[in-house]
């Protein structure tokens, strides 16, 4: 192992400081629910359609509605090379993990045989896209009026050289780094998504999970603000 130390983050942030976040609900007028979530340069737009008719018919579940996720990185979204459009091995994996991330919190028992389609488009990316996608998706699902036990907030935490950093950028990710995207529920802090790219020690992983709670709560505050902005009301 190298003994290089990571002294200062390239964008001047503290190690436990997430990028500037911004969220907006109701950005796609024709969708049943939609939201935008921006973290640094990564920008995800999520749109929910449905519950609507599920086709092909053999995929219908008479006990509940099915959430279908479609994660799509736009061709021009990256900072480097053009992203090849259309589904890829990577996007299929992300669709699956996002579906699984929402499974414990959404209640679709009222919508038997239906499909709830969630389209997430990333129009600009700088690492942490699946987290931005999940954050936007939670808002879009809430906006669409799908019953949810709790909201979900996600954040990527990593280890660059010897330092645990929150919300890595692509530049940091491309260094000798470990990248761990984590999604947690808002109240109970239960983990609904946990992936890892790289190698990390047991102690460091524990530390990452400890920091994840605080980091996802910061995301949650942004999400709450965005929903309140649209739906208003007397409090907040």
């Amino acid at each position: 192992m190298t003994t290089t130390t990571y002294k200062k983050r390239s964008d001047g942030r503290r190690f436990d400081e997430p990028r500037e976040m911004e969220a907006k609900v109701g950005v796609v007028p024709r969708a049943d629910g939609s939201a935008m979530f921006k973290a640094g340069k990564s920008l995800a737009i999520a749109a929910v359609y449905g519950p609507r008719q599920m086709n092909p018919a053999f995929m219908r579940n008479p006990k509940k509605g099915t959430l279908r996720v479609n994660y799509n990185m736009m061709a021009f979204s990256g900072s480097g090379e053009r992203v090849r459009p259309g589904p890829s091995r990577r996007s299929k994996e992300i669709n699956l993990v996002i579906e699984k991330a929402f499974e414990p919190v959404i209640d679709t028992t009222e919508f038997s045989n239906t499909a709830i389609d969630l389209y997430i488009d990333l129009i600009q990316t700088d690492a942490g896209t699946r987290c931005a996608a999940i954050n936007a998706a939670t808002l879009a699902l809430a906006d669409a009026g799908i019953n949810m036990k709790e909201m979900i907030s996600a954040m990527a935490i990593g280890k660059v050289h010897d330092k645990i950093c929150i919300d890595l950028t692509k530049e940091e990710e491309d260094m000798e780094a470990v990248d761990i995207p984590i999604a947690m529920t808002s109240n109970s802090g239960k983990v609904t998504l946990l992936q890892m790219d790289g190698v990390i020690s047991r102690e460091d992983l524990k530390e990452v999970l400890r920091q994840a709670r605080d980091a996802t709560l910061k995301v949650y505050e942004v999400q709450k603000k965005a929903l309140m902005e649209k739906y208003g009301g007397k409090n907040e």
């Binding site: 949810m148 909201m151 007397k234 409090n235």
Partner: peptide, 14 residues
């Protein structure tokens, strides 16, 4: 923890 007619969000403790 909230008043009548207050707007609440999914997961918010009432």
């Amino acid at each position: 923890m909230v008043d009548e007619k207050d707007v609440v969000l999914p997961g918010q403790i009432i």
